[in-house]
Write a protein that binds this DNA or RNA. Structure first.
Ligand SMILES: [Zn+2]
Ligand SMILES: [Zn+2]
Ligand SMILES: [Zn+2]
Ligand SMILES: [Zn+2]
Ligand SMILES: [Zn+2]
Ligand SMILES: [Zn+2]
Ligand SMILES: [Zn+2]
Ligand SMILES: [Zn+2]
Ligand SMILES: [Zn+2]
Ligand SMILES: [Zn+2]
Ligand SMILES: [Zn+2]
Ligand SMILES: [Zn+2]
Ligand SMILES: [Zn+2]
Ligand SMILES: [Zn+2]
Ligand SMILES: [Zn+2]
Ligand SMILES: [Zn+2]
Lengths: 402, 402
DNA sequence: CTTTCTCTGTTTTGTC
DNA sequence: GGACAAAACAGAGAAA
DNA sequence: CTTTCTCTGTTTTGTC
DNA sequence: GGACAAAACAGAGAAA
């Protein structure tokens, strides 16, 4: 009866019904529960999923309405894949079911530097292994959704892989000697160009800076003649005078001084044109003297903002909590994405270590967060989802990690 | 000889050669000049394009190296299409060569309210008509690059369409009565669901607010009992207490007060949890009394930031130049995209009027910016590119519009 | 009001 | 306990 | 160091 | 000239 009621809801596109008032949206949820793209192991409202979900007995194919009419042809009950960045990676696999790059797991001690071993645990509860088979990853390169070749429920193996302790040392090692493992079936999108980034690094000198998400990285200096500070600032449209003094190096600028602005409040006297390197810090006449900070800027105004923990990049102007972080925030404005996914064939790159850490879980299938509230057995792959679960349900789960 | 030198450059992936030192990057530019995806009417260095570009006589097909090996099969010399948002819209057409929605042009006078006419000018210099043929737009919906069916150089018509004066009144009229024109060949991706947005508007009441990129829009009020200001702020992990007081309405939050933070500087006393509506403003105990502003917030700290022209949304904290703009900035954090592309079949939506204004040019093919520097005949479709041209070349072009 | 996943400003944890 | 850096969290937010 | 195109904070323009 | 809003600009930045 509810099911037919749902169809009526569909007819009137009813999103304003009583379920919405309960913050549940039965209509939305029931529809998504029929989609092959999502497979929450334990839906937030499993009563709804049991009643109307993909595995519901009285859910005949012609009732499927997801993504338009009449396409309810083959009903795959498995995870078809996932969006890796912008690219559809068809059928992410459990590492032991296909080729594996992270076949080492460094457990606890960093002093045991090159200890390499393959760990296979099985005591982790509720760890669900993805059921796809091939990899065919094409991250960050293509753009087409290769939804082909999704074998269904192939031999749902029992092995459960170890967790994804962020082995920061290990991964950098893995970058070097990618172990080409056996068992590789259908490696379709073996995109074979890891060159470009390497070349860029060669060109732009030694940008070592090997510690995103932390690390001081006091590099950056170059010193270039001062471009005539405090310009006249009264001529409305002076010719830019392309004297070619390496000033167009590509990088965010701060605003020029401009006259006749009819802004009443905050007369914001702006400094001369300068570049806050998107590629690398360039010059810098005004030096920050805050402890531990060695940044420099080409205008006094930039330095003033910087010392107030405000990012001086044009259009940014964010205020930060700590001066240390302000320096790390700069990477947001730079093109470098120095972190790579260690998974073979995956071209995903990152600016932040945590993003990489969580991304790797889409390969391993790990769901390291488990709610310990009695009765609630949900697990989560990403902290954010776990956090939301706790916030919305009130479950506590002090330290539900791994 | 240079051509063979370029091949050597390719072999060694040479990006550090002398051309780079001239800020030209001959290698990069020559490669892109062979790509069918880009067709700058007047390249920034046409000597290079003439020598090595797609129409260069001694550029045999097997020399094409763009986007990997061996795919130099058919060499289309036309604009294949463009990325509309995230979606490849194959072969955007000149309006008069296919079906046309903006078949009215309101010229100068807004008082002549419903004057509808079809203008066809031809005196505009250097206006290049796109040469594709079919529309097959699938904006904002699909994700696949439908690079099929790109007829080549079909009957390069001479008609030149009028410019795209941002007829703000007209477009809103067009929203209503989409004129289904004749001449529609191959309307492949006629994505037939313009419902959802309409429904959402019905649900969430009257969010009229019809003037993005300006307009005060004093809507938003609702008033909900105060959630006990200035909480104890000393218990490290109190249960969130889901008392379901409509506090989880979906929207950006500001930070909770938290204890035992070992941050030394700026002890930033944080207010209680609150939501700065992503959907619509919700409650608000603390009212801004700045002239013309009627915003309100659920914590004193938020209001303090707001009055300092700082966006109080968590993770934003941007400082702005004017209080007026701060209020408009809020739309960045909201899901609404109230502006629509008036082009038939294009699902592109926008938050900012200017984005829509420029987007429409990819349909019309307009290039309203022309450099008036003697000898430089370049035109541009987007202000930004025109600005960059002037900045980099020093050309002046006082008012190069239309 | 869904689920999946990435980004990032701040908080927590771990080590000396 | 106090640095300090590395890791993790907790949101925001994009996409489907 | 390319071209194409969208987003957005500030400046300019247009109207009263 | 002074509001004030609408339009435009000038970057940043993403994607290919
Ligand atoms: Zn581990
Ligand atoms: Zn500093
Ligand atoms: Zn910034
Ligand atoms: Zn870039
Ligand atoms: Zn990956
Ligand atoms: Zn729980
Ligand atoms: Zn016009
Ligand atoms: Zn205000
Ligand atoms: Zn904001
Ligand atoms: Zn959203
Ligand atoms: Zn459009
Ligand atoms: Zn010019
Ligand atoms: Zn201690
Ligand atoms: Zn969200
Ligand atoms: Zn006047
Ligand atoms: Zn740029």
């Amino acid at each position: 009866m509810i099911q037919s009621a749902l169809e009526i809801e569909e007819a009137i596109h009813g999103n304003g019904d009583w379920t919405v008032k309960l913050d549940i949206n039965l209509f939305y949820s029931a529809n998504l529960s029929r989609s092959p793209l999502y497979s929450k192991q334990m839906p937030y409202n499993f009563i709804i999923y049991n009643a109307f979900g993909r595995n519901s007995p009285d859910n005949t194919p012609e009732k499927s309405e997801y993504t338009g009419r009449g396409s309810g042809k083959q009903r795959r009950a498995i995870v078809a894949g996932k969006w890796c960045g912008k690219v559809w990676m068809s059928s992410q696999v459990h590492p032991l079911l296909a080729e594996r790059t992270i076949d080492e797991e460094q457990e606890q001690n960093k002093s045991i530097s090159a200890q390499i071993k393959i760990e296979v645990k099985s005591e982790r509860p509720r760890e669900r292994t993805p059921t796809g088979k091939t990899v065919s990853t094409a991250c960050k390169t293509g753009k087409k959704r290769s939804s082909t070749a999704v074998s269904r429920n192939a031999s749902n193996a029992q092995l459960i892989i170890a967790d994804d302790h962020d082995d920061s040392l290990l991964s950098s090692i893995l970058q070097q000697h990618r172990k080409t493992n056996l068992r590789s079936k259908r490696i379709k999108y073996e995109t074979p160009e890891p060159q470009k980034d390497v070349d860029k690094k060669k060109i732009f000198g030694s940008i070592i800076d090997d510690d995103p998400d932390g690390g001081p990285s006091t590099r950056l200096r170059k010193r270039i003649p001062k471009p005539s500070n405090e310009s006249p600032a009264k001529l409305v449209k002076v010719k830019p005078a392309p004297t070619k003094q390496h000033e167009s190096k590509k990088g965010p600028k701060v605003k020029l001084p401009s006259a006749n602005s009819n802004a009443k409040k905050e007369p914001v006297t702006k400094g001369p044109r300068s570049n806050i390197g998107k590629r690398m810090r360039e010059e810098g006449e005004y030096h920050c003297d805050l402890e531990g900070c060695s940044m420099s800027f080409s205008s006094k105004q930039e330095l003033t903002l910087h010392k107030k923990n405000v990012c001086p990049v044009e259009g940014c102007k964010k205020k930060f909590f700590s001066h240390k972080y302000l320096v790390q925030h700069r990477r947001v404005h730079m093109d470098d994405r120095p972190l790579k996914c260690p998974w073979k064939g995956c071209k995903m790159t990152f600016k932040w270590a945590w993003a990489r850490t969580e991304h790797i879980r889409v390969h391993t299938g790990a769901r390291p967060y488990a709610c310990t509230e009695t009765g609630c057995g949900q697990t989560f792959r990403f902290v954010s989802d776990f956090s939301r679960h706790k916030r919305k349900t009130g479950h506590v789960s002090k330290k539900g990690r791994s």
